[in-house]
Amino acid sequence: MKLLVCIKQVPDLESRFKANAEGVWYNEADLAFRMNEYDEYAVEQSVQLREKLGEGTELTVLSIGPDRVVEAIKKALAMGCDTAVHVQDAAASGKDPWQIASIIAAYAKDKSFDIIFTGMQSQDRGSAQVGVTVAELLGFACTTTIVGFEYDNGTITAKRELEGGIKGIVRMKSPALVTCQLGLNIPRYPTLPNIMKAKKKEIIAIPVADLLREESLAATTSFHPPAKKGGGIVLEGDMADLVDKVIAILKDKTAVLR
């Protein structure tokens, strides 16, 4: 069996974001990057399947981006992926989901992967398009937003998360792609011995020009903060003072405190 998990490196979402010089995405200076949270669940699920299947199964992790994404790749290797592909692209953030998916599909098309795992979306771009688009381009069965995954002899049974806490149960045959939702599993922390072992694992570098054949279908024209709606009060400062102010506001504006 051959498994692939696709990951993205994203900034810490608690950061303050400023537009870059072109004004179409964030300025990367001063941002700390980490593995996209949804992808941690995808990596964990793929590693669990890799462990269950044992010998004869190979799990590859793939990431597209500048050199910094190697850190996220190393984490996935330390979590249990066997081998890695770094699609080198310093301009990845300027590509639309269609181009990103096309790059992944161009890489995967002659590799006969049985199952591909992705996060359901990235925390920064949040389009929720790449996974499904890859599956469509490869002709794979695909389901999204999974919170349950079982594999048995070529058949996947997945549980999709729907609105209101309802779940939908779906069955499909490999080759297939699933997009992983938060809460699917409990992503492991890489242990020190596994971090050391991961250093010996191979990371194959492929220049993006070898895989990119598509033009973008949509262009970002501006990156900006939301328009302030007004009305809301922001309170900062001394703790005791803050508490008194909040008590006074609650007494004045709500019937909860008298």
């Binding site: 900034p11 979402l13 974001f17 179409v24 964030y26 639309d96 989901p97 269609w98 925390q123 920064d124 771009r125 949040g126 389009s127 929720a128 398009q129 279908l217 949509a218 262009a219 970002t220 024209t221 501006s222 990156f223 900006h224 903060p225 939301p226």
Partner: peptide, 28 residues
């Protein structure tokens, strides 16, 4: 083209959320 999670209509495209809802993008 697919534009995901549109929150507003703009003169020459659509506004969408990004960065966990902290920021916005205009997409054409």
């Amino acid at each position: 083209a697919q534009i995901s999670e549109v929150i507003a209509i703009q003169d020459s495209g659509f506004e969408v959320g990004c960065c966990n809802g902290k920021m916005r993008r205009s997409v054409k």
